[in-house]
Nucleic acid binder design. Structure first.
Lengths: 350, 350
DNA sequence: GCTAACAGGGAAAGCGTCTTCCGCACCGGC
DNA sequence: GCCGGTGCGGAAGACGCTTTCCCTGTTAGC
C-alpha cells in the first residue's frame, strides 16, 4: 500500500466508469433523478472496484446538512449514561445517523465549551444528557448557544430536566421518588436517612424532594442530620454512608440514595460498618441500572427505562417540532427487591 | 429566532470585520501567518458578535483531514466497553479530537458495514474494540477495508486481539488467566468449572486456555462437562451457571467466568441455586469492572486498567508508526477478593 | 538614497460533493 | 410532419473553508 495515496474521489469513479461527475453522484446516492440502468451499474462497479467511500464532510458541505447526532453525557463510564447512550446509538443507527459523543465530566463550563465545539459539526441533533445544576452562571450562555443552534435548523433535546425552553425527555424524578417513599412506608419503614448529590444538582434535588414529600404524606420526615450531600458517584455514595455511620444512625431503618450508583457504594460501606443491608438496615436507590439485580441483597429502586430514554430523545428530535408540548414524562416504576424486606417489627405502629 | 436563518459563515465574519476572507481565516485558526493585531482583534470580536462557529465539515474538506476519532465497540452499555470508551474520549479530547461511536452489537457483518460507513468520515483514527472471532468469513473484507483506510493516511488500532496486521493494544488475556489459575490453586482450590463465551470468541478462548494451562502446571484440569459456552453477557453468565447447577457441580469448588459481567450473572444464579458465593462455592471473573467491588462477596478477578487501555489506543494511534513493533501488552494483575476465600479444607492434599 | 529582503493583506484557486440549468434526443399527439 | 413534452447526460456553479500566490508597503543594509 502506497501510504501517500489519496482516497478515491467521486471524480475517479466517474472517470473509471466513463461518465460525468453528475451521473456518478446521482448513481451513488439515491437522488431524485433517474439514471440509465447501464450507467448506474457501471458506476457502482467502478466504485466497488476502487473502494470508493463518499466523503461525508464534502457531502455535508455540499448539502448544507449532516447526518450526525451529537450526544453530551456526564461520564460515559457511568451506567446511567452508558445505558442512555446505548439507546441513542441504536435509534440513531436505525435512522441512518452517526453519533458523536463527548463527556462533560459534570462540569458546566466544560459543557458549554463542548456545545460550542460540537456545533461546529453542524449536527442535525444535539442531545444533552449531562446533569443540570440550579443557578449555573453558564446557563444564559448555554441557552444562547442552543438558541443559535436551533435557529439555524438544528434540534436540541434535553434529557431529564426541563430547565431551558427546549424539547425534553422528561424523567419523573419527583414522582418516582414519591411513589418509592409511599411503597417503603407501606412496608413498615418509618426512620430514614438519605444520601443525595450536590444540593444544586436538579436530578438529586427532585428525587430527594419527592421522597420527602412522599414521607410527609404519612407525617414522616428525615432529620437534617440524616441527610448527606456528596458526589454523584459510587465513591460518593460510599463516603456518604461512612459519614452517616459516623454521625450515628443506629435507629435508622432505611437509607435512600438518590441514584443506584451511590446506593451500591453505600451498600458496601454499610456492610463494612457492620450494618447488613437487607437485614439490619434497608437500602433503596433510583434508576434501576443493570447491576443492582446482582448485588446482595438485590436493590430496591425506581426503574427508568434508560435505553428507551435514549431512543426517545432521538425520536423526539427527529419528529416535527409541533409535538413539543405533548411530551409526557417517562414513567418511573418502583421495583421492590431484597434490600427492603417487609418490616414486620414496626407494623404495629401503623 | 428566525428559523430559516443560516449559520454565520466566515464570509459574514470577514465582512463584519471589514477584512478579507483570508485574513479572517488566519485570525480564527492558529495559522502560521501572522496577522496584524488590530485586525485580529476585530475579527475575533466580529466572530463573537455573530456567534460564529467554524464549519468543521468545510474545514475538513479544505484541509483534507479531520479531527475525528472513530470508535467501534461491541455494546456501549457493557461496562467493559464503556470504560474503554471513557478512556478513548478523555485522551481524544486532550488531543483536541472529537469521538464518534458506533456499536457492532457483536456482529461481524455489522462491524464491516460500520467500518465502511465510518470511513466516509475520513477519521484520523479508527479504533476497533469489538471482539474478534476466529475464522470470521468477513475477516478478509475487513482487512481490505482497513488496509485501504490506512493507505490513505488513516490509523487503525485494535484493542485486545493481534489478529490482523495493525497496531494493537494488547491485553494479556492468556497470561492473566494463567496467573489467576495459579493464585487460586495456591489458595487451595482443586476442582473447577468454567463459564466461557462462544468457542470462537478469541478473548474468551485465550482466557480459558490460559486458565487451563495454569491449572495444568499443577496437574489439574477442568472436565469438559464442567465447561459451559454461552453469551458474553450478564444473562449469558446467569444461564450458564444455571446450566452448571443442573448438570451437577456438587463437588466443584470454584467457578471461573471469563469475564466479570458473566461472573456477576453467575453469582446470582448460584446463590439462587443454593450455592452461596464465597461460602459454599467460590467464583472468579476477569476484567475488574467497577461493580465487582460492590457485589457480595467482592469478586476475585484479573484487573485490566480499562480506561488506560482506551487512552493507550489513542496514544498509539497518534504516535509515529515506527513504534508499532514495540507495543508491550497491558499488564493484567490478579486481584483476590472475598469470592475466593482460602480453602483450608483441602490444604492438606497439597 | 538605493536596493534587497521581508511582512502581511487580499484575490483566487482549490478541496469533494451536490444540484441547477442547459441541451440533446426521443416520444406522442394532432 | 411539426411541435411541445419528457427523460436524462453533462457542464458549471455553489457550499464554507484553507492556502497559494501576488503585490504593496516597510524595514534593513550598505
Amino acid at each position: 500500500m502506497n501510504a501517500g495515496a489519496k482516497a478515491p474521489t467521486l471524480h475517479d469513479v466517474a472517470r473509471a466508469a466513463g461518465v460525468s461527475l453528475a451521473t456518478a453522484s446521482r448513481s451513488l446516492n439515491g437522488s431524485e433523478r433517474k439514471v440509465n440502468e447501464e450507467y448506474r451499474v457501471r458506476v457502482l462497479a467502478a466504485a466497488a472496484e476502487l473502494g470508493y467511500t463518499p466523503n461525508l464532510s464534502a457531502q455535508a458541505v455540499a448539502k448544507g446538512t449532516t447526518m450526525t447526532v451529537a450526544l453530551l453525557v456526564g461520564d460515559i463510564a457511568d451506567p446511567y449514561f452508558s445505558s442512555i447512550a446505548a439507546g441513542v446509538i441504536r435509534a440513531s443507527e436505525e435512522a441512518g445517523l452517526i453519533v458523536t459523543m463527548a463527556a462533560t465530566e459534570r462540569d458546566a463550563t466544560r459543557e458549554l465549551d463542548l456545545v460550542k465545539a460540537l456545533r461546529g459539526q453542524r449536527p442535525r441533533v444535539l442531545i444533552l444528557a449531562g446533569s443540570r445544576f440550579a443557578g449555573e452562571e453558564t446557563q444564559p450562555a448555554l441557552a444562547a448557544e442552543l438558541d443559535a443552534f436551533e435557529s439555524t435548523g438544528g434540534r436540541v433535546v434535553f434529557i431529564s430536566q426541563p430547565e431551558l425552553p427546549f424539547d425534553t425527555v422528561l424523567l419523573d424524578n419527583y414522582g418516582g421518588a414519591r411513589q418509592l417513599a409511599r411503597a417503603l412506608v407501606d412496608l413498615g419503614y418509618r426512620r430514614f436517612a438519605a444520601i443525595s448529590g450536590s444540593e444544586s444538582l436538579l436530578t438529586a434535588r427532585d428525587r430527594l424532594t419527592g421522597f420527602m414529600d412522599g414521607l410527609a404524606e404519612h407525617a414522616l420526615s428525615i432529620p437534617t442530620e440524616h441527610i448527606v450531600h456528596t458526589e454523584f458517584t459510587r465513591d460518593g455514595g460510599y463516603d456518604a454512608a461512612t459519614e452517616l455511620l459516623q454521625r450515628g444512625i443506629d435507629e435508622v431503618e432505611l437509607v435512600f440514595a438518590v441514584n443506584d450508583v451511590m446506593a451500591v457504594g453505600a451498600m458496601s460501606a454499610l456492610r463494612e460498618g457492620g450494618r447488613i443491608p437487607g437485614e439490619t438496615i434497608a437500602l433503596a436507590g433510583y434508576d434501576d441500572i443493570p447491576t443492582v439485580r446482582d448485588v446482595t441483597p438485590a436493590l430496591t429502586t425506581v426503574r427508568i427505562p434508560l435505553e428507551d430514554v435514549g431512543r426517545q430523545a432521538v425520536e423526539l428530535a427527529l419528529a416535527p417540532k409541533s409535538d413539543r408540548e405533548t411530551a409526557t414524562p417517562i414513567a418511573a416504576t418502583v421495583v421492590l427487591r431484597g434490600s427492603t424486606p417487609v418490616l414486620a417489627t414496626t407494623a404495629v405502629t401503623d
